[in-house]
Design a protein around this nucleic acid. Structure first.
Lengths: 158, 158
DNA sequence: CGGTGAATATAGCCATGGCTATAATGGGGT
DNA sequence: ACCCCATTATAGCCATGGCTATATTCACCG
């Protein structure tokens, strides 16, 4: 059938790969979409804690562009996931796991954004695109971006 | 020095940007996540049509790694969005708008994947990461990637 | 010490995008 | 011509992540 034809490499024009490989790609992409929200929250909480010493729901909501109850519901989930600790009617704090995830997300974010900047993309676009891209960058790609960034810096200012 | 910047991002307290700017970033990222599924479907349908002449629900489901009713429901939505036309118990076809969207998604995908390959990322990782990244790449960044790709080719085989 | 306003908690709604189970249908083989 | 079965349609469930409206609680000030 069509599948058998598509599975023959010699008859396969570039772009259509085996169904199993296709599945793996899409499953990974969906996983990235799922973890993206969590990473956004944790990273933002870390930023707020570092910058102002407190992470209140209203601040999180204001920066994410969502309503406060949305933040409250998500914080419950983050608490279940052992990423934050909440004291009622007070701000949230990150657990050790939360700080770890925040640090990784932040590093990833920074590398992606710096890399986009090194390509000549405007600061605002780099920020926006990095926000979406960072959750889909594997460690291998991240390493490649970091290497390219190093080469760029070495070549630009030796 | 470049290593230091890339390797120790968490030691640099990121200057917090204004809340409104933050909101714009996250809103764009959420929009990208929303459109990602639609683009995945349309791009895949176009690939199936090009390579086997038909896009059946079972094939779409097998490649996306989802169940057939999930595909059926999504096709209804794509029909409402005027991206596909369905004849009952037959495969789907793309509308003009659908073909247009598929072409744009495919071009975007190709540039991102080729760019990752040019960075030295393995073929499999490039495929997987490109699948997630492509939906979050603005036109400006896409242009920058294309330019860098051209420079890479010129430098590699002049 | 009490009241008031801001922050948080809670309840309940919606759309999206998954799933399973099952019914309806159409095409191909005998 | 007919029946089988692969395919598609439909029904109904769940989790996620948004929202509004409203109740609670805290903190501060008079």
């Amino acid at each position: 059938m069509a599948d058998r034809i598509a599975a023959l490499p010699s008859l396969m024009p570039p772009g259509l790969v085996g169904p199993d490989v296709h599945v793996a790609r899409f499953r990974q992409a969906r996983a990235g979409r799922r973890s993206a929200v969590v990473e956004d929250y944790v990273e933002l909480i870390a930023d707020l804690l570092d910058h102002s010493g407190a992470a209140r729901q209203v601040d999180i909501a204001a920066r994410l562009g969502v309503a406060q109850p949305t933040v409250a519901k998500m914080l419950k989930r983050l608490h279940v996931d052992a990423l934050v600790v909440q004291t009622p009617y007070r701000g949230v704090a990150l657990t050790e796991a939360g700080r770890c995830l925040a640090a990784r997300s932040r590093a990833r974010h920074r590398i992606v954004e710096d890399f986009l900047l090194s390509l000549g993309v405007s600061a605002e676009t780099a920020r926006c695109d990095a926000e979406g891209i960072e959750h889909h960058v594997s460690q291998e790609t991240l390493d490649a971006l970091a290497r390219a960034l190093c080469r760029h810096h070495d070549g630009a200012a030796p």
